[in-house]
């Protein structure tokens, strides 16, 4: 169940970004974006294509430098899970985890690998080459690599985009488990229903601008019901589209 936003805002932020701006030549990809994520909070970044979701995540992850603004945590303290599994297909599951554990300089790589295999439910496939695994299992390894150093913040870029519904359900179960252990999880998605279902809070980005930060219910409440004068219940996707339209996107 989503954690209360009021509770999250009362605790110190696991990650805070302030005034993040990024330009590619003349084009402004991100315009003074500021937000914070509390420990154990699940934050979804949603928005139309080209809104700046991946740019925001890559700046938070330390892959790109912002032209202005700052992030409170250094990249080494943030777990990063890119959209495509960033692991080696010629190595086995365990070899991938061990390699990144060693590169992360974790104290006991073998113990961490065993724990991650257990958590991802991939212990039985530990010796299998990654190239032989399904997309869902590969994504689990991808996420496990992001969690090897037990970071207080986990960033996921479109984590469920290539998964079938069953794999997606298992993925979110795993991610929620991480959040329950206190990890702040920030993820981008095209699927607004997924954001509504799993996120405690949504950040709406459009043309590099942060238009909204709050719960899905709060976002739905800000818009007029579609096609009528009388306010009433409507699905989140419709509310989201209406929200963007009202703000000229």
């Amino acid at each position: 169940m989503p954690t209360s936003v009021a509770t999250q805002r009362a605790t110190p932020a696991a990650l805070a970004a302030s005034g993040l701006t990024k330009r590619y030549g003349e084009r402004v990809a991100l315009r003074e974006v500021s937000f914070a994520a509390a420990p154990g909070e699940l934050v979804a970044i949603i928005g139309p294509n080209g809104a700046g979701k991946t740019t925001l995540l890559s700046i938070l992850a330390g892959i790109q430098r912002p032209d202005a603004g700052a992030v409170t945590r250094p990249p080494r303290e943030i777990g990063w899970v890119p959209q495509q599994p960033a692991v080696y297909s010629k190595l086995s599951v365990a070899e991938n985890l061990r390699l990144f554990a060693r590169l992360e300089k974790v104290a006991d790589p073998d113990a961490v690998v065993a724990r991650m295999l257990e958590q991802t439910g991939l212990a039985a496939r530990a010796g299998d080459e990654l190239g032989t695994l399904s997309g869902g299992n590969r994504q689990r390894v991808n996420i496990a690599v992001g969690l090897l150093a037990e970071p207080p913040v986990l960033l996921l870029d479109e984590p469920s985009s290539s998964l079938d519904p069953r794999q997606r359900a298992r993925l979110w179960e795993f991610v929620r488990g991480q959040a329950e252990r206190g990890t702040a999880v920030i993820f981008s998605t095209h699927d607004v229903q997924e954001a509504e279902r799993h996120a405690d809070r949504v950040l709406v980005l459009a043309d590099g601008e942060l238009l909204f930060a709050g719960s899905a219910r709060e976002l739905a409440a800000t818009v007029q019901p579609a096609g009528g004068d009388v306010a009433g219940p409507q699905d989140f996707e419709t509310a989201f589209v209406q929200f963007l339209r009202e703000r000229g996107h």
């Binding site: 990249p75 080494r76 599994p85 960033a86 692991v87 080696y88 990144f100 590169l103 690599v145």
Partner: peptide, 13 residues
């Protein structure tokens, strides 16, 4: 190609 580059250069290497 394996998308590992962005993960590596975030401070690992």
């Amino acid at each position: 190609e394996e998308h590992a580059f962005s993960r590596l250069v975030r401070g690992l290497v």
